[in-house]
């Protein structure tokens, strides 16, 4: 394995990790502030991707498509919060799991109803297509670099939002003590809707950005949702910093594991066996990572002790 290939894979891992962070940030915020476990987060990712594909199809503009993704996912998130989710805050996790599982069925089948079963395609815009040459002579797709940049920018903005703004203060206070900030006169139900819509918008953005690399189809959110849960749990529920570290860890493990493990096994066994064993272990690797983290630290890397 050459160093060039390795750097390329690290960049792929970084890109995947940054996307996972956009998903995981919303999940962990919603859990931290409202104590809600939301399985339907992957559906918001899907809504964002479909909105982007539809708008790009009508207008041909990628920028408008991204705005549509943000708006559609945020609107869908706010609507879901107002109609369903806010009835679930006082319920136990079992009810939340079941109700949001039901939301997945409704949103997935609803999208299939509107857009049909065939995947849509979202094209990478011309000004972002093609490879660029990085220092050291590495050829890397410009679009993936752009995703990394957007992801890191959003992460920085989110950190600033949480640390510096009034909304951020309310979010942090909501995590610490819900009753207290309600007593201090913050309109808690508006705060909850805002946080939920914010998380939904981030998921929708991730869906639209990834939709240009993969196809846009019903059910695309579910594998990502599970990975985002792994990220949130590894990082510690409720912690944005944990979600960031966890997302990069999972993104790297997933990408590098798929490339490196078959090669490592190739040193000691026949190539075909090594490829098979490496492939199976690498797809299991992030779950092994998660189990290992939870066994050592039952509330995640940055989670408050339970």
């Amino acid at each position: 394995m050459t160093i060039l290939l390795f750097v390329e894979q690290v960049l792929n891992g970084l890109q995947f990790g940054v996307m996972l962070f956009l998903m995981a940030a919303g999940l962990t915020l919603v859990f931290g502030v409202m104590g809600l476990i939301n399985l339907a987060h992957g559906s918001l990712y899907m809504v964002g991707a479909f909105a982007a594909a539809a708008v790009a199809g009508w207008t041909g503009s990628f920028g408008l498509a991204l705005i549509a993704a943000l708006a559609a996912a945020a609107a869908a998130g706010a609507l879901i919060e107002l109609v369903v989710i806010r009835r679930l805050y006082a319920r136990d996790h079992l009810d939340q799991v079941l109700a949001t599982f039901a939301l997945i069925l409704i949103l997935s089948e609803g999208t299939r109803w509107v857009f049909g079963s065939f995947p849509l395609y979202l094209d990478v815009p011309v000004y972002l297509s093609g490879p660029v040459t990085l220092p050291g002579g590495i050829q890397y797709p410009l679009y993936r670099l752009a995703i990394i940049a957007v992801g890191l920018a959003v992460a920085a903005a989110l950190f600033a939002l949480i640390a510096k703004t009034r909304l951020g203060i309310q979010i942090r206070a909501g995590e610490a003590d819900r009753e207290m900030i309600a007593a201090l006169g913050v309109d808690i139900s508006k705060l909850y809707t805002a946080v939920f819509a914010l998380g939904a918008a981030l998921a929708g953005l991730a869906g639209a950005l990834v939709g240009a690399i993969q196809s846009v189809q019903v059910g695309m959110g579910e594998p990502v949702l599970i990975l985002a849960f792994v990220v949130v749990v590894i990082g510690g529920i409720g912690s944005i910093k944990g979600a960031f570290v966890g997302a990069l860890l999972v993104g790297m493990t997933d990408t590098l594991g798929g490339v490196l493990l078959p090669q490592v096994f190739g040193l000691v066994m026949a190539p075909s066996e090594a490829a098979a064993l490496g492939a199976s272990l690498s797809s299991m690797s992030i779950y092994i990572l998660m189990a290992a983290v939870l066994v050592v630290r039952p509330s995640g890397l940055f989670g408050a002790a339970a």
Binding site: H93, F229, V233, S283, Y287, A291, V295, G300, A306
Partner: peptide, 27 residues
């Protein structure tokens, strides 16, 4: 392993073990 955790962590870790076996079966 899972019962060392509780609440949401328990839900998630059991989910992760299920997915682990799912990918194992696929490969």
């Amino acid at each position: 392993l899972s019962l060392r955790t509780s609440g949401v962590y328990f839900i998630m870790i059991t989910l992760a073990f299920g997915q682990m076996l799912y990918y194992f079966a696929i490969s």
